[in-house]
C-alpha cells in the first residue's frame, strides 16, 4: 500500500497491519458456539411447539432472538476466520456458515460472495451489493427494503459480476440451496401454517431487518469511498451487546481477519493509527472499550 506523505512513520500501514495480525490469531470458538447453538435452539422449537410443550408465542420470541444471532457466525465464516488459512479446517467455515443461516433462510454461498464484493467496493453505487441498504434515506426505508425483498437484489449483482467466474460459480452453487429453502418453507406452511409463520418466516424477516440496520446501514451511512473513509465509528442509545458492537464495524473493514470478540482490544491499540488516518468518528473512540462506553445519551 502506498503511504500518504502526511502520515508519520510511526503510523505506517505496515505497523498497523502487524498490530492487526496480533489480534487475528485466536480461534473463534464463541462464534461457533453462537452459530451452532442458535441453530440447535431454533430447530428444537419445532418439536416443542408442535407437541404443545412450548407456547407458539414464546417460540416466536425465542426464534426472533435466534434469527438476530444468526448472521454474525456466518460472517466470520465468510472471512475464513475459523480456519485462518488452515486447509484442514476450511470445512469448519462452510459448516458453520451454512448451518447458522438456516434460521435466516439465506444460502451461505450468496452471502459470502456478495459480502466479499461489499468489502472490495464499499460504497460504490454500482458494485457494492450493500449500497442500497447503507445509503437509504432513513432506518424506515431500510426496513421497507428488507421486508419487500429489494434490499437483496442478487440478480442485479449477478449481471454486474457476470465476467467474474468465481462469483458466478458461487451463485450457481447457492441456487439449489435457495430453492430447497423455498420448497421447505412452502411445504411446511401447508402442513403447519401458523408455526411456519411464527417460527421461521417472521423471525427470519425480523432477523434480516436487525442485521441490515446494524451491519449495513449505521456503520456506512454518510460515508464515502476509500480504505479509511468507507466505514465510521458511531454511537447509539442501545448498549453495544444488543447491536453486536457494530459501532466498531470500521475496524472489521480495515482488518477483516480480526475476530469479532477481539475487535475492542484491537481498536484500543489501533486508535492512534485510526485518528492519524482520519477514520470518520475515530477521535470519539473511548480509550478503553469495556462494557457500554458507546452508548449515546443525547
Amino acid at each position: 500500500m502506498r503511504e500518504s506523505p502526511e502520515i508519520a512513520a510511526e503510523f505506517s500501514f505496515e505497523k498497523e497491519k502487524a498490530i492487526a495480525k496480533s489480534f487475528s490469531q485466536r480461534f473463534q470458538w464463541e462464534m461457533i458456539l453462537i452459530g451452532l447453538g442458535q441453530a440447535a435452539i431454533w430447530l428444537s422449537l419445532w418439536p416443542l411447539v408442535l407437541n404443545g410443550s412450548l407456547d407458539l408465542w414464546m417460540g416466536f420470541i425465542i426464534a426472533i432472538l435466534c434469527a438476530c444471532f444468526a448472521y454474525l457466525p456466518s460472517h466470520e465464516a465468510q472471512h475464513g476466520n475459523y480456519s485462518r488459512g488452515n486447509p484442514k479446517l476450511r470445512w469448519l467455515d462452510g459448516f458453520v456458515g451454512h448451518i447458522t443461516l438456516i434460521t435466516l433462510l439465506y444460502p451461505y454461498h450468496i452471502l459470502r460472495v456478495t459480502h466479499m464484493k461489499h468489502h472490495a467496493y464499499t460504497n460504490n453505487p454500482e458494485k457494492d451489493p450493500d449500497y442500497l441498504n447503507a445509503h437509504s434515506s432513513s432506518v424506515l426505508k431500510v426496513i421497507k427494503n428488507v421486508l419487500d425483498g429489494s434490499s437483496t437484489d442478487f440478480g442485479k449483482y449477478l449481471e454486474v459480476y457476470s465476467t467474474d467466474k468465481a462469483f458466478v460459480n458461487s451463485f450457481e452453487k447457492a441456487i439449489p440451496i435457495a430453492l430447497l429453502y423455498r420448497f421447505t418453507l412452502l411445504v411446511l406452511v401447508i402442513i403447519f401454517p401458523l408455526e411456519t409463520l411464527f417460527l421461521w418466516w417472521l423471525p427470519a424477516k425480523i432477523g434480516t431487518v436487525y442485521t441490515t440496520v446494524f451491519f449495513s446501514y449505521y456503520p456506512h451511512v454518510g460515508t464515502s469511498t476509500g480504505r479509511y473513509k468507507d466505514t465510521s465509528f458511531w454511537s447509539h442509545w442501545m448498549p453495544r451487546y444488543l447491536n453486536h458492537s457494530m459501532q466498531l464495524h470500521f475496524v472489521h473493514h480495515l482488518h477483516p481477519s480480526i475476530g469479532h470478540f477481539d475487535e475492542p482490544k484491537a481498536i484500543e491499540t489501533l486508535k492512534p493509527f485510526l485518528v492519524a488516518r482520519g477514520v470518520p468518528g475515530a477521535d470519539e473512540i473511548p480509550d478503553t472499550i469495556t462494557h457500554n462506553p458507546l452508548i449515546k445519551f443525547s
Binding site: 440478480g155 441456487i175 412452502l186 406452511v189 401447508i190 401454517p193 401458523l194 409463520l197 418466516w201
Partner: peptide, 25 residues
Amino acid sequence: IFDHISNWKKVWFGLIFLGSIISAV
C-alpha cells in the same frame, strides 16, 4: 423452470404461503 419461478414467484408465494396463512387465521 427457473424462468417461470423468477417471473411468477410472487404469485406462487402469495397463493401457497399467504393463502395457507390466511386460511389458518
